[in-house]
Design a protein around this nucleic acid. Structure first.
Lengths: 181, 181
DNA sequence: CAGTTGTCTTGTATGGCATTCAAGAGCAAA
DNA sequence: TTTGCTCTTGAATGCCATACAAGACAACTG
């Protein structure tokens, strides 16, 4: 009982912490957000954060998982849509986390925690895309390649500013080339 | 004369500086390489570097231009090769600067100097690719879109580890889809 | 109730970082 | 010899992520 109460408090506190961290990471960037800044925003001492997370990178992973699970909630909305719409949806979903996408890539070499998260994330996404493509009659091997390409296109569009028309043209072309009528 | 002599010395010193910085950036990463470390390697005081470059980002830009001009030397080798081979060549050229590609993207938001370099770089590359595609009979608008896609694919391949087969498959598919027989 | 234990918070410190500033060294021009 | 320019430095500033040991407080135990 009491143990349970504590666990609830822990979750609540973590949630508060992660939502503040998420807000700052998204607005100021990962490098632009110091642990002290997050702590100040929460009204606690900077080192308090280290009781909850072993490092800033681990806090980032927590934030990433948070964003992810939020996105997964919206996932059922588009499972039945065509490929192009699915990609457009992914872009809209990740657009607010744009900053974090490049941050993750930049920290891959330096942080094992981030690397693990990144690899797992890609495995998940690619599996999902491959599944979709195979349902559309694409052969396994080709589907694997196309999933990678689709991922690169989404990442590229997230990393570089572009117009609606550009996005539209790229997604349309990819969908057409991937699934010839 | 004397002025000239001095200018020569300046260039020599800058070259020494940038080649050391390049070596360290490429082996330890941008974040993993401190200004002090570069200075130590050169046997000078850390703040000496600031007489030559206003900031670490400006030093990075100098290094990037260095790598670029080195690559441009090899460019004539492949101007007459087909699209797929050109992309494979670009991948080989930039592979050693892999680290720096993500670094540039990560620092885009924080550094105006980097942003300028990045934008200029993309304009240059896309213009070159568009030119090639148009020579193959692709219409302007379509060529523009394909150039962006090609860039995203190269960046994606640089950022993510992959097998020779994967690379081969992606490049082949892209070339086929871009230039239907 | 008193005492122990575990959870959470903090003060304080460390070593690193990019960068700044004012003072100097060395050499060229006047 | 003096002036001025280019280059180098010592010393400092204000950040940063993080470590450690001591404390506050509540929950559990006897």
């Amino acid at each position: 009982m009491a143990k349970n109460k504590r666990d609830i408090d822990l979750k609540v506190k973590q949630d508060e912490l992660e939502s503040t961290a998420a807000r700052l990471f998204l607005s100021l960037g990962y490098d632009g957000t110091s642990m002290s800044r997050i702590a100040r925003e929460l009204g606690v001492a900077p080192n308090t954060l280290y009781w909850y997370y072993a490092s800033k990178d681990e806090l980032l992973v927590a934030v990433l998982n948070r964003q992810m699970s939020q996105t997964l909630v919206h996932l059922p909305t588009i499972v039945d849509e065509p490929l192009k719409d699915k990609m457009a949806w992914a872009l809209r979903e990740f657009e607010q986390s744009r900053e974090l996408v490049t941050t993750v890539h930049a920290r891959l070499e330096q942080s094992a925690v981030i690397r693990e998260w990144h690899d797992q994330f890609h495995r998940f996404v690619e599996a999902a895309v491959i599944h979709t493509l195979k349902a559309d009659g694409v052969a396994q091997e080709r589907a694997t390649m196309l999933a990678t390409v689709g991922t690169f296109l989404v990442e590229g569009l997230l990393a570089h500013p572009h117009s609606k028309r550009q996005r539209e043209a790229i997604l349309q072309w990819f969908a057409d080339s991937a699934l010839p009528a």
